[in-house]
């Protein structure tokens, strides 16, 4: 993985709020603040991991960055172009550069469509290839992700979960994007197959110089695949650091708790776990001040009133916490 310091995608104070409607007239009663002020730069060739528990807004962040969700607030700058207010026609050339791999590859494939046709779709929209050239490209893609040429004629139900995810990957790379959002691409797979797909993702990145935004709740996979990691909690940024710093020196109490909660596949060494009290608060009514203060083991009084500033504590290592 070669990471140069060139910014590919700049995300500035991005917010995505979903309205909650209710009552007789379906008026907007409240907002679910799924993503609430995310600012980060994604560098060319890197894999940026986004971790957090369910409901922390990590998937919504990925979808918003790709333009699959409209922005509530903020700016998206891709390769120096501010694309936040582009119409879908203006966005088309950029969509060719950004693709997505979904968690459930079966749900993202049309069961009545042959795999070959599914893979050709993006080529029809984004390229001027003839049907023969397209077929050739699809066969080459199948080969690249470890499938066989005869799979061209088959339907999604004839494949196993791992193979379907390979098809999802082939479709994402079919038009040579530079940036791919991977939304939990391996969490629906069995461990032995999961490892195969991780290897494939890494090989493809090396070969094509891809940049990944890797959304996952599996901290083991993230450590293995990512260069930098962003930890999110209730739609907000909690900690951002290069992967080795985050795992060896987690600084935010939430990151610490998250890392200590993972069951380790080693026996004998029983480590002391940081127990978090209670559950994740509702994102429609997030706590005031620091979003984590209701569950934080070291929370002080001012944590419930003042929002902690985002600051750099070490080179490339950022946190939002009053106490650390």
């Amino acid at each position: 993985m070669v990471v140069d310091e060139q910014v590919l995608y700049s995300v500035k104070n991005v917010k995505k709020h979903f309205p909650v409607r209710g009552g007789l007239l379906q008026r907007v009663k409240n907002h679910v603040k799924a993503v609430d002020g995310i600012t980060l730069d994604i560098y060319k060739g890197e894999t940026l991991g986004v971790v957090g528990e369910s409901g922390c807004g990590k998937s919504t962040l990925g979808r918003t960055i790709l333009g699959l969700e409209s922005l509530t607030e903020g700016e998206l700058v891709f390769n120096g172009n501010n694309i936040s207010n582009y119409s879908s026609r203006q966005l088309k050339p950029y969509k060719k550069e950004m693709q997505m791999i979904f968690q459930d590859p079966y749900a993202s494939l049309n069961p009545k469509q042959r795999i070959g046709d599914a893979l050709e779709e993006a080529l029809i929209i984004h390229t001027n290839l003839t049907s023969l050239e397209r077929r050739e490209r699809v066969l080459q893609l199948l080969n690249e992700v470890g499938l066989k040429e005869e799979h061209y004629e088959r339907y999604p139900h004839e494949f196993s979960g791992g193979q379907r995810q390979r098809i999802g990957i082939a479709r994402a790379i079919s038009i040579n994007p530079s940036f791919i959002v991977c939304d939990e691409p391996v969490s629906a797979l069995d461990v032995s197959v999961q490892a195969q797909v991780i290897k494939l993702l890494r090989d493809l990145q090396e070969k094509h110089g891809l940049t990944y935004l890797f959304v996952s709740h599996d901290l083991g996979v993230v450590r293995h695949l990512c260069n930098r990691v962003l930890v999110m909690y209730l739609g907000q940024m909690v900690e951002l650091a290069p992967v080795h710093k985050l795992y060896e020196n987690p600084t935010h109490p939430y990151t610490e708790a998250l890392l200590s909660a993972i069951p380790r596949p080693t026996v004998g060494r029983k480590r002391e776990r940081i127990r978090l009290r209670g559950d994740l608060p509702s994102p429609s009514n997030p706590p005031t001040g620091c979003p984590f203060h209701t569950r934080c083991p070291i929370a002080k009084e001012h944590c419930s009133t003042e929002k902690p500033a985002w600051r750099e504590i070490d080179e490339g290592h950022f946190i939002a916490c009053h106490e650390r």
């Binding site: 290897k199 795992y247 380790r264």
Partner: peptide, 13 residues
């Protein structure tokens, strides 16, 4: 299974 504690862990599917 990728090991969380070992950055050099060699994944062998």
């Amino acid at each position: 299974v990728p090991n969380v504690d070992d950055p050099e862990f060699d994944l062998k599917p």
